[in-house]
């Protein structure tokens, strides 16, 4: 059912990994590693398709090949780069901003993925609160 969760900054995933922050950072910023995991279990990413220009404003792009043979070029632009702790990139086509946070834990490393997808008009706390209250009202309405 409806959940009021469009606060403008969503926790998408959290994972504890049995490795060092530096290795995760390398996995997210080197073409061969990106090719190895970005497509998950559903798509293949040809290593030669991955380009990484690791600087704010630099582009990061790759092809995803679905089992059907359909290939899609994905392009991202780095917003900020804080090795080995935080990586922020936008996908201009969707307006989606992704923040990857890497934090050393007592055993292993915590990885979190946050995303926001809001038009510029809603990129203020006040506007995001307004949207949340709409969705709260909707959730209340649907419970009637």
């Amino acid at each position: 059912m409806m959940r009021a969760q469009l606060t403008g900054d969503e926790l998408i995933a959290r994972r504890r990994l049995a490795t060092e922050p530096e290795r995760i950072w390398t996995a997210f910023t080197t073409p061969a590693s990106i090719a190895a995991f970005w497509g998950g279990s559903h798509a293949r990413v040809p290593p030669e398709s991955v380009t990484v220009d690791l600087r704010p404003g630099g582009e990061f792009a790759l092809d995803t090949c679905a089992p059907t043979g359909a290939t899609r070029r994905l392009r991202f632009v780095y917003v900020s780069i804080t090795a080995p702790r935080e990586l922020v990139f936008d996908e201009p086509v969707t307006g989606l901003r992704t923040t990857v946070t890497i934090t050393r834990a007592a055993e292993g490393t915590d990885l979190t993925i946050h995303q926001r997808r809001l038009p510029p008009e809603l990129r203020t706390a006040q506007a995001a609160d307004g949207l949340t209250s709409i969705l709260d009202a909707l959730a209340a309405y649907l419970r009637h």
Partner: peptide, 25 residues
């Protein structure tokens, strides 16, 4: 309600991607 479902789609995609990352590491 569709405005909030994109988040669920992103969650599924990233969980799958992080499974692959874990395997890669």
């Amino acid at each position: 309600a569709q405005l909030s479902t994109w988040i669920d789609e992103q969650r599924r995609a990233w969980h799958d991607r992080l499974d692959a990352l874990e395997q890669h590491l």
